[in-house]
């Protein structure tokens, strides 16, 4: 009589059951499993501990592990929900789910607000907005005088800060995004729609049928 030996699949620390992750996010089980392939690739690129460190995140984003970027730092910090300096698989999947084309716009609006609320005050304030504009100019070839940067910040505030109290609150942000939908463009990653095509190798190892 024959027997079938099934070798248990080894997972890295922080691994979570794809069935549970799929139930909590916009992804299917197959998509979560495909994301695990991407996660493994990123999380083993420098420090092979199965967690994404900031240098590995920067390497995946910029092909350079030392590139400092305010916005990449903010995204990393928001992905790192447990605030322990690394991104584990569950955090990776839950955060990327916000960028899924089928995820509710309100979730995307709220994530973008938290991204831009640099000092976690619950508001986007003029000095934060100016700091972000300067950071963007620093990473691009665009050169603008301080006066022009100030005008851009003032004009944006005049449009977004409807209550005129000198800060943008979540409701004002929502209204501003509805009027300027292009601001949410980078909150949607079309790649996530066909993640199983991008990482087909998971299909051979899949432990669960959708």
């Amino acid at each position: 009589m024959g027997c079938v030996c099934v070798k248990p699949v080894k997972h890295t620390p922080g691994y979570e059951d794809p069935v549970i992750l799929a139930s909590e996010t916009t992804f299917t089980v197959s998509e979560v499993e495909a994301l695990y392939e991407l996660f493994k690739k990123i999380s083993h690129s420098i420090i092979k501990d199965g967690l994404i460190h900031k240098e590995e995140f920067q390497l995946a984003l910029f092909r350079n592990s030392n590139k400092k970027n305010l916005f990449a730092d903010r995204v990393f910090d928001l992905f790192d929900a447990k605030r322990n300096g690394v991104i584990d698989f569950g955090e990776f999947v839950r955060s990327l789910s916000i960028f899924h084309p089928d995820t509710e716009k309100t979730e995307k609006i709220s994530f973008a607000f938290r991204l831009y609320d640099l000092r976690h005050t619950g508001f986007i304030e003029p000095d934060e907005l100016k700091e972000m504009v300067l950071a963007l100019l620093n990473e691009s070839d665009l050169c603008l005088s301080d006066d022009v940067v100030q005008q851009i910040v003032d004009k944006t505030f005049a449009e977004a800060d409807k209550k005129g109290d000198g800060k943008i609150d979540p409701d004002e942000w929502k209204e501003f995004v509805v009027q300027n939908p292009s601001l949410l463009k980078n909150m949607t990653l079309p790649y996530l729609k066909d993640i199983t095509m991008a990482f087909p190798s998971f299909v051979m190892k899949s432990e669960v049928n959708d």
């Binding site: 903010r74 831009y116 990473e139 005008q151 977004a160 300027n180």
Partner: peptide, 25 residues
């Protein structure tokens, strides 16, 4: 006219916010 730009529009072009690069091989 740069002063007519929307600050958030400008910021959203940051490479650090382009998570699509995570999926590029």
């Amino acid at each position: 006219r740069p002063a007519a730009m929307n600050a958030f529009e400008l910021i959203s072009t940051s490479q650090g916010l382009n998570l699509g690069s995570l999926f590029e091989k």
